[in-house]
Design a protein around this nucleic acid. Structure first.
Lengths: 136, 136
DNA sequence: ATCCTCTATATGATCGAGTCATATAGTAGC
DNA sequence: GCTACTATATGACTCGATCATATAGAGGAT
């Protein structure tokens, strides 16, 4: 199994994150303020640290999916220097979806908590080498 | 986007769980006691509730991968009635891997916490319709 | 002019976790 | 024989995530 001990030259790139977690993070950023993709990418990098650099491909695709689903709307901004940017704004549907994600994430956190509590228990009960005969 | 409003007859079966989360849960169960696959499947069902029924395919495949990676060892048990069962026992390497997972899960939980705190903040700041001009 | 870097958006190929369907087989009850 | 429960396992497929790459405007250096 992947254990973080780099097997390939590029190291272990196993994700082990919450599925689709980029979605609520993008929506939350947009809930605070309209923004374009590149801006969002940098915001994610700042939040999660350099090691968790977001994949641009994933990010831009997710934003387009959001728009197709009516969660955000976009307009082109040609004002700045450099290439034009597509500026996204959260819609009401997007806000609802973000709320739904937040409850889902609370549930996920609860599951993680339950696991950690169980794990600490096992750690505490000695190293439990062979608890075969002792039922409790 | 998938929002839990069943689009197909079978409803939304989006996972939205932590990637590979079945791994630490299996390892933790085995840390408590040696067990065979079917037993582990029922234990997971009991822990996570009926709605989160574990897929047997995933479970058995994961166990075989564990063994291939030296995280568990297995022996056949023909004693009980019904077909023979393959009984798995955690190895030292498996225990280490479980410990590694637990720290990873703690990090994941921290990320979820950070998201939820941010979300609550946005909720608290009114509905933040257009905080464009007010920087803070 | 040409090259490089930074900003900015986007697509194609591929990987692999997770899901769904299905196969096999032993035991027990009707 | 038929069905149900226990028990393990594989093949096909979906889709989120990763990796590589393409395009293009603007600004600075040589």
């Amino acid at each position: 199994m992947c254990r973080g001990r780099a097997k390939s030259a590029t190291g272990c790139r196993c994700a082990r994150q919450v599925r689709g977690f980029i979605q609520p993070r993008l929506l939350l950023l947009l809930a605070k303020q309209a923004a374009h993709g590149y801006e969002l990418m940098e915001a994610l990098r700042a939040l999660e640290g350099e090691e968790h650099l977001a994949d641009p491909g994933m990010l831009y695709r997710t934003l387009r999916q959001f728009e197709a689903a009516g969660l955000v709307s976009s307009t082109w901004d040609e004002a700045g220097r450099g290439p034009a940017r597509r500026v996204y704004r959260l819609t009401e549907a997007g806000r609802d979806y973000l709320a739904w994600w937040s409850t889902d994430i609370r549930q996920t956190r609860a599951r993680l908590d339950r696991f950690l509590v169980e794990y600490e228990l096992v750690q505490a009960n000695g190293l439990a080498v062979h608890p075969k005969s002792s039922r409790r």
